[in-house]
Each structure stands twice: as C-alpha cells, then as structure tokens.
Amino acid sequence: MKNNIYVAVIADIRDSKKLHERSVFQKKLESVLNEVNGQINFSSISKFVDNPPLFYKEHLESIRHEEKENGSGFDYDHNSTNDIASDFMITLGDEFQGLLTSGFHLVQIIDYIERSLFPIKLRFGVGIGEIHTEIKRNTPFGMDGPAYHIARDMISQLKAAERKTLEPSANIKIGIQDNDWLSLLINTNFMLLSAIKKSWTESQVHTMNVFMKEGVQKQQNTANVLGINQPSVNKALTASNFYTYQYALNVISLALCDIGNEFAMRADKKDSTQPQGAEFDV
C-alpha cells in the first residue's frame, strides 16, 4: 500500500491466566511467529485466484482486465514475507503484534497462527490505516499511527463483546480507515467463520495442518503423511467445513487487495493534482 497505509495486527490469548506451562506455550508461539516472519509460503490464495468459485470469477476477471489496461497487475503469487513491514513478535506475556504493507496475506497469516496454536483461543485486532512514525522491521516498539490505534480498539471491542450475552461471537475484528462499510462486511464474515471454527476438533485441525503444509493441499499426499486412507482425509476436511472456510478467507483476501488498490489509486490521483511534497490525506 502507498503513502503510509499499513495493516497493523495486534493479538492476544484468551484466558491466558488459565494456561498450563506458560513457558512452553510461549516458546511454541515464538516458533510459529518466526515461521510467519520468514519460512511460510501462503500459496493457497494464488491457487484460488487461478480457480475461483463461479460467483467471484466475473468480478476477478474484471479486476484483472482493469489492471492489465492500467499496467498495474497485482502479483498474486508473491511471497507473504514481502508483505511484512515489521516482524510478528511477542510484546507482552500474552500479546503479540506485526505490521504488513498489504492485506493480501493477512487472513492466511492469522489462519496459520490460529491452527498452529489450536486449541488455544486467540483474539486478533486489525487496523488498516496510516503509520506516522519510522517503520522498524526488527522491533515492534516505537511505531505509532491510526493503523495501530484502530487495531487496539478492535481488540477492546472483542473483549467487550465477550462480556455480553447477546453480542455476535467473533475472535477477529478489522477496522479500515475511512471505510466503515467494508469493515462491517468483512467483520460479518469473521463472525460466521467463528461459528465454523467452534466445531473443530484437534484431530480435524491436525489433518488441516498436514493438508496445507506437508500435503501441499492434496488429499492423497495428506493421507500418505498421516498413514491413513484418502477417504478419511476427505471426511475430516468435509466435516470441518474446511473448504468453505478457506474459500471465505480467500475472498476476504481479494477484498483487502481491492482496498489496497483503492488507496493506491487515490494516492496516485491526489499526487497528480497536488504540488510536489504535498501530503496524502486518506
């Protein structure tokens, strides 16, 4: 994203005081975050772009056509580590955060962290907006701006909702600077995805993790790694609504890619009409 627009992620652990062997969990969390920072290739989104569901295909084709005409085609296969402006790191005993330059891999990163730490329950507050300070890749401290303020507010809203009996349930909430309507639509999807995740078992999540990683998203490969037959893999993925869940994540990714393009186009338009050195005001 251009002109200081970033994606801030702040996360914490629900009921962290009830954790047994906190030091063991913290080492596991550090290991997962290190993987996100430099070792994981989130390729499911590029596969989705190549073979989208029918209801999204026409929209996606129009985006690519427009990008081709503008000469600004987005690289859907680019590695997620290129999106990381500031590494995901633990900031407090039960809190961690990271900063991204794009929202394209945001939900894949969140999904990977959640599944890797399952059944531990996490909250994620996401803010898309400006950063007004210097970006520091190797430390989460000393950075500030609306993106972080929004992310922190999202965490507070999630905690407040947990204390109310009639509030919709979710563990991820996003706020997009100057775009409350898209924020509402995406957050509604997060609520529905939370309902899917509530039914997951540890066995199902283990199958998902192997399928997405060692199994390279192929059921037979996954069965070979797990030492079971392919129908058992299919049964676990189907029972957990995993394919529906993944498609929903990928549609959210494309929506966030769209908002990134919108910020960029607004910046370019503003730059073309303002004297050099003028600030971009979202």
Rank of each mutant, 00 (worst) to 15 (best):
P275K: 10
A11E: 10
E30W: 04
N51K: 15
L166P: 00
V205H: 03
I84D: 01
L193A: 03
D144I: 04
S203V: 12
L60E: 02
N34K: 12
F104V: 03
I155W: 06
E21P: 02
L158V: 12
N234A: 14
N224H: 08
L99R: 01
E67I: 01
N209C: 10
N37H: 05
Y243P: 08
K270G: 12
A11K: 05
F118R: 01
N41L: 10
N224V: 09
P53L: 08
F88D: 03
K47Q: 15
R115M: 07
V9T: 11
T188K: 13
N261V: 07
L100C: 07
T222L: 07
K269V: 13
A11M: 05
D153G: 13
E279H: 12
K197E: 08
P146D: 00
C257K: 15
T273L: 14
P52K: 06
Q177F: 04
V9K: 02
H20T: 13
I174A: 01
N187R: 08
D153M: 10
D77W: 05
I45R: 03
S183P: 00
H206G: 06
E58G: 11
G175T: 02
V282P: 10
L237E: 04
T139L: 06
V251K: 06
S156N: 10
S23Y: 08
L117M: 08
E61M: 12
A85D: 11
R137G: 05
N221Y: 11
D258S: 14
K197C: 01
F141N: 03
Q246G: 08
F242N: 01
Q274H: 15
A255I: 05
D281I: 15
V225H: 04
K17D: 14
N34H: 11
S102Y: 02
I186G: 06
S23V: 05
K164P: 00
E95P: 00
A85I: 09
T165Q: 14
V9H: 05
P140H: 02
K68Q: 07
E162W: 01
A147E: 06
P275H: 14
I10R: 06
D144W: 15
N209D: 14
S31Y: 09
I113M: 04
V107L: 11
S86Q: 09
K17I: 09
V49K: 06
K18G: 14
K28I: 06
N250V: 00
S183G: 06
Q217S: 15
A161V: 02
P119R: 02
Q157W: 08
G98K: 03
A223L: 07
S169Q: 11
E21D: 13
N224Q: 11
Q39A: 15
G38Q: 07
S232M: 06
I196K: 11
L60M: 08
D75W: 00
V7G: 02
V49R: 09
T188I: 10
Q219D: 10
L158R: 07
N224M: 10
I63H: 08
K57C: 09
V225K: 05
S16R: 10
R22H: 12
Q97W: 00
T81S: 11
I150L: 14
G127D: 01
K235S: 04
K270Y: 14
Q274Y: 12
M212P: 03
I150N: 04
A195W: 04
I110H: 03
S44D: 13
Q39S: 12
W200N: 02
L256F: 07
G215P: 05
T165E: 15
G145R: 00
F42N: 01
T81V: 12
A223I: 02
G103I: 09
H65E: 15
K2L: 15
Y76C: 03
